[in-house]
Amino acid sequence: MGVTPVMLSRAALCVLLLGFALPGPARAGQSEAQRAERWSDLRHAIFGDRVVEDAGDRVAIDAPARAEDAAIVPVAIRVTDTLAPDIRGIYLVIDDNPSPLAAHFLFGPLADTREIATRVRIDDYTYLHAIAETVDGRLYATARFIKASGGCSAPASKDQALALQRLGKMKITFRERPEPDLPIDAKLLISHPNNSGLQRDQLTQYFIPADFMQTLEVTYNGQSIFRLESDIAISEDPSFDFRFRPPRSASLGEIKVEILDSSQRHFSQSWPIPAATQM
């Protein structure tokens, strides 16, 4: 294809933002046919005429069927061991969100693509679609229905002073790894309002400006684990669970996270990887 994946996702995102907001409030009451049509529209907007195959059990979405808090819905995307080595990216689409393309993960050479997880906002009863893209350009899609509503315009920031004070700070934890050859499981937390721009000040009638993380890059000793193109659908204080394999020959190095947000702020933080036996 003629465009890079990054360009594609940006272009698709604009199309989605401008063209696909469905009218009418009662989207929870959509029929299955309407939902199928919605997905068909979205699929064409994001992937054009490319074939999108049913992933069967090769790709799975793990998320609660009914979300207790629509502003913080944990979503994990899993790929089978067989398919995982061929995967170079995963798209997460929340069909009925104002901006449906929630995330595009692009995996680097060090990623273990079998599982990646984050937390998202969900605006209405909707299908989630996860589409795994292989290195040779095949697309495998799977879907899951979620009951949640109001997540995109929901009240943000329980403690605004703390949010401001902690802006851009990150925290990473590594799960214990008994052997050096096993992949490393990491959990990354980022303090950022990831404001949707959908809240309006009742007194001034101005919208609170959108302020969200646009790209996230995670590297190990300069080599990519994954890059994320994201949007307002990622929850406040974004969270990512990911897995990677440091090169065997290398001595233990450093993991680095870099973020660019929609206000053009840049945040970066690094951590040394603890040795396996000491974890």
């Binding site: 943000a156 920031s157 605004q160 002073a161 809240q199 309006r200 609170i208």
Partner: peptide, 17 residues
């Protein structure tokens, strides 16, 4: 003193709800 900020963030959502 922090109420105006909270109202700005949440007021429209609360009115709708």
């Amino acid at each position: 003193a922090k109420l105006p900020g909270a109202l700005a963030q949440r007021g429209s959502y609360y009115v709708e709800r």
